[in-house]
Design a protein around this nucleic acid. Structure first.
Length: 592
DNA sequence: GCCGTTTTCGGCCCGACTGTTTTCAGTCG
């Protein structure tokens, strides 16, 4: 049982307690414990036999320790089971709908015994909910739309969750004698935001025809398997505990390239490639590129050989969408895509001053260890009260602390003062310009009122970016992936104005916050926007999420020159929108 | 349910926004 699984059980217990109208402080303590478990760097499951170690974790007391022991032993928590039995095993799915919180779930249960999304949909269509409190036409329409959106996104998994499953399986498979290479194919290799399943290719002596039985048996014994779907000589499929389907394929080294190409996809890329092969007198499948007339193999061992035999440069997996990459590969004009190594700074992170988990020093050290030349500390502003957002006074104190840390690193890494300032409903910011003007990195983001009509939201953001203190627009599209309530605005108008003003567009790299899809990124570049890519890290480990965002940029054909934080510190600052003149001009302070 | 103590109870982040509430409850971050 992983920390993530344990944290989820605690979260679900908290959700159920909330539906059950339990004590709010008890609920909060379950959420705190879930957070502590998720944050822990040691495997909690390995500590359950030594409760004194569990009790050392802040937020874990006697009761939670017992819960964790039960969870590891029985895969559940007694209180959770009890509440699920009292209501319905599916009642928690209702909380996934936008605008649906515990109070409403409870009201629906009391009024009509509704305890699943299907039941809710039926009840709305029957008109059984009319007349219930807070269930007007608008609310019902919103719920129906939410149900549609939920059905669309369910069945797909966020890419970081898939990657976590992949890393565990890679470790497991690589340890088997006779396994030489373990590679992820499919959506994970192409850097998509989500994946429907996980494709894994394995090659080495243990995968040669006739020799696969011991390895197949070992795969079938993988501890994370919930249900085995199929088990053959060179393919084994199963569901993990979280219902993610995994396909493991064992391949002879001679076919590895062909299989990797085939299982990486995308479907439309492969169709186009096979058509091209046919025109050249070849046939392409998961075993080899071969001549049609006699079946003789032209290329199979590596992807490079296959693409070369088709008269193409090797195409990076992220580009394989049949969106012009085949033509570009033929003309030797594929883009030189951005990589993680091009990045010199990460400009959006939170600390203990608001809702982050580490100090300014710890975030700086972590960034230094990852090879960055500069970062910005950008905690929340006061409007995000729940995060203990900074008011005027605390913001000014925070600037002083950041500058002190910057000096203490003596140039090994630059630490810029910044803030993620909230855009209010009327487009003003929740901190005065006098404070904002003291910080080189001001990211303006919308956090509240996400249901605002499209025109009003557009006006709101347009007004915010007119403020000369704003140098970066954060969460620019509100297309928060697989999240509830994406907000809508006229993105073209906003991006065009950002380009005119020199306001950079932030691409948020964290998979749970991916703001810009491929199309949005291409639009931003077409309109002449400058991009920055940030992790929005709330702890040091979040800094490692950068590669997810880099994949997004690569999928949009982004080259390093299009992204401002590939520049060195001084050039980066100079490339941002010019800062408003500050009365007390101190050259040293202006850049720190 | 956790925590800390000026220890064994009393405190435990809060403000903006929405819809339908005719004065505010529920959701969200």
């Amino acid at each position: 049982m992983t920390n993530q699984n344990l944290a989820q059980l605690l979260e679900e217990t908290a959700d159920l307690l909330e539906i059950d109208c339990g004590d709010s402080f008890r609920i909060r303590s379950y959420r705190r414990a879930a957070e502590a478990v998720a944050q822990s760097t040691v495997a909690i499951a390995s500590l359950v036999d030594t409760p004194e170690q569990l009790l050392e974790i802040p937020g874990i007391g006697k009761g939670m320790a017992a819960n964790l022991q039960a969870a590891v032993r029985d895969q559940s928590i007694p209180l959770r089971d009890e509440l699920l039995a009292r209501y319905s095993s599916r009642i928690l799915e209702l909380l996934q709908l936008p605008g649906m919180g515990p109070k409403t779930v409870r009201m629906l249960w009391d009024a009509a015994q509704i305890a699943s999304i299907d039941a809710l949909e039926a009840a709305i269509q029957d008109g059984r909910l009319s007349g219930l409190p807070r269930m007007g036409d608008k609310q019902l329409a919103k719920l129906l739309k939410g149900i549609q959106d939920y059905r669309k996104s369910s069945g797909r998994f966020r890419i970081d969750h898939v990657e976590a499953a992949w890393q565990a399986l890679e470790t497991y498979l690589s340890a088997f004698p006779g396994v030489e290479r373990v590679t992820a194919a499919g959506s994970l290799r192409r850097g998509r935001e989500t994946a429907g399943d996980l494709d894994i290719l394995v090659t080495g002596p243990a995968c040669e025809p006739g020799a696969t039985a011991p390895l197949v048996e070992t795969v079938a014994q993988y501890p994370g398997i919930r249900d085995l779907i199929a088990r053959g000589d060179n393919k084994i499929s199963f569901y993990l505990q979280n219902s993610l389907q995994v396909d493991v394929r064992l391949l002879p080294a001679s076919s590895y390239g062909a299989a990797l190409q085939y299982f990486t996809g995308s479907k439309s890329h492969n169709v186009a490639l096979r058509q091209r092969a046919l025109r050249m007198g070849y046939t392409l499948n998961e075993w080899a590129l071969a001549r049609v007339e006699d079946g003789s193999v032209v290329a199979a061992a590596t992807e490079e050989q296959i693409y070369a035999a088709l008269g193409l440069d090797w195409i990076p997996p992220e580009l394989r969408e049949n969106m012009g990459e085949i033509e570009a590969a033929q003309a030797h004009s594929l883009p030189h895509l951005i990589t993680l190594q091009h990045l010199r700074g990460d400009l959006h992170m939170h600390t203990q001053a608001t809702d982050g988990h580490h100090s300014i020093e710890e975030m700086s050290e972590a960034a230094l260890a990852r090879g960055y030349g500069y970062i910005a500390i950008t905690d929340h502003s006061k409007n995000l009260a729940m995060t203990n957002g900074l008011n005027e006074e605390r913001a000014v104190q925070q600037i002083a602390r950041i500058r002190a840390v910057d000096r203490s690193f003596a140039g090994r890494i630059r630490v810029f003062a910044g803030i993620e300032v909230d855009i209010l409903a009327d487009g003003t910011l929740d901190l005065p310009d006098a404070v904002l003007a003291q910080m080189p990195i001001v990211i303006a983001s919308v956090h509240t009122g996400l249901q605002m009509p499209r025109d009003a939201m557009t006006e709101r953001v347009l007004r915010a970016i007119e403020n000369p203190c704003v140098r970066i627009l954060g969460h620019a599209t509100g297309r928060l992936l697989l999240r509830r309530e994406p907000y809508e605005l006229d993105l073209t108008t906003v991006l065009r104005r950002c380009a005119e003003l020199g306001v950079a567009i932030e691409h948020n790299a964290a998979p749970e916050r991916l703001d810009l899809c491929d199309r949005d990124l291409r639009l931003a570049l077409e309109l002449g926007c400058r991009l920055v890519i940030n992790t929005d890290a709330h702890d040091t480990r979040h800094l490692d999420k950068m590669h997810f965002g880099i994949s997004q940029l690569r999928r949009a054909w982004v080259e390093p020159a299009m992204v401002l934080n590939t520049l060195e510190a001084e050039e980066f600052l100079a490339a941002l929108r010019p800062r408003p003149a500050t009365p007390a001009h101190n050259p040293e302070e202006v850049t720190t």
